[in-house]
């Protein structure tokens, strides 16, 4: 059924992505590809992987933007995966019921066995979260690592999406946005987490944390500490000499 859940979902699982500390290493994208090519949507097909024009299915891509001009410009690394929207247009446009939003935790999934590969869901998504697998003839997308987060064969600490577990800078956080005590809720509240393209009215679950103010100018740094001065004698003469 491609109507959205009638009631608000009891849990709203999603990610917080911190644009302040993402270093743009692409490790989350690589680990996502690594896990998911053996997971729910396996394989994440690569077309002509060893040719001059390789392409393939990725659920997570890292864009790098330059923001501002001149001395005020800054580089922001911008990881982007499915935002598991509350009002997911990719779900309602699906003609077959292959695309659905889980009523218990809000995760948006594709049932590959029902997908006819019409691509309409990828047209409806503003964020480019859905990527068509031309080899399998079906649409694929981020599952929020549904096969990790509920996987009791993994240690509890590993029951987070692959992108979150691998981030060396801890720029990605996973949790339930309906729980005000969760890390993701607290981070969103403290740091002013925001929605991407709110004007598209998809009500994305995932939130992005803005870069903190710059601190790379002289006036941003504390004043140099004045060192004690040697008094009298030979050491004072050397101190004087070296201080010139």
């Amino acid at each position: 059924m491609t109507s959205l859940p009638a009631q608000p979902t009891p849990k709203r699982l999603g990610l917080v992505i911190d644009l302040d500390i993402c270093v743009g290493c692409h490790a989350c994208a690589v680990n996502c590809k690594e896990w998911n090519t053996g997971g729910y949507h396996a394989p994440l097909t690569d077309i002509k992987p060893y040719d001059s024009d390789p392409s393939g299915v990725w659920f997570n891509r890292i864009h790098t933007f330059e923001v501002g001009l001149g001395a005020d410009s800054r580089v922001v690394h911008f990881p982007k995966s499915c935002l598991h929207c509350d009002d997911a247009p990719c779900v309602t446009v699906c003609p077959t019921g292959a695309s659905y939003k889980r009523s218990d935790d809000g995760i948006v999934l594709v049932d590959e066995n029902m997908c006819i590969g019409c691509k309409l869901c990828s047209w409806a998504c503003p964020y480019g979260a859905r990527e068509y697998d031309g080899d399998a003839g079906v649409m694929k997308k981020c599952t929020l690592c549904i096969d990790r987060i509920y996987n009791e064969n993994l240690e509890e600490v590993a029951r987070v999406p692959a992108c979150v577990s691998t981030c060396p800078a801890s720029a990605r956080h996973f949790g339930d946005f309906n729980d005000p005590k969760s890390d993701v809720s607290k981070l969103t509240a403290e740091r002013g987490g925001f929605d991407l393209m709110p004007e598209q009215e998809c009500k994305p679950t995932n939130k992005y944390l803005p870069p903190r103010p710059r601190r790379d100018r002289a006036e941003d740094s504390p004043a140099p500490i004045a060192l004690p001065k040697a008094e009298g004698g030979f050491l004072a003469w050397v101190d004087d000499l070296l201080s010139r």
Partner: peptide, 16 residues
């Protein structure tokens, strides 16, 4: 799309 407009004009530096 990036939510970074308050910092200035946004342009793509590197594609994914």
């Amino acid at each position: 799309a990036t939510g970074l407009g308050h910092l200035g004009k946004v342009r793509l530096l590197d594609p994914p």
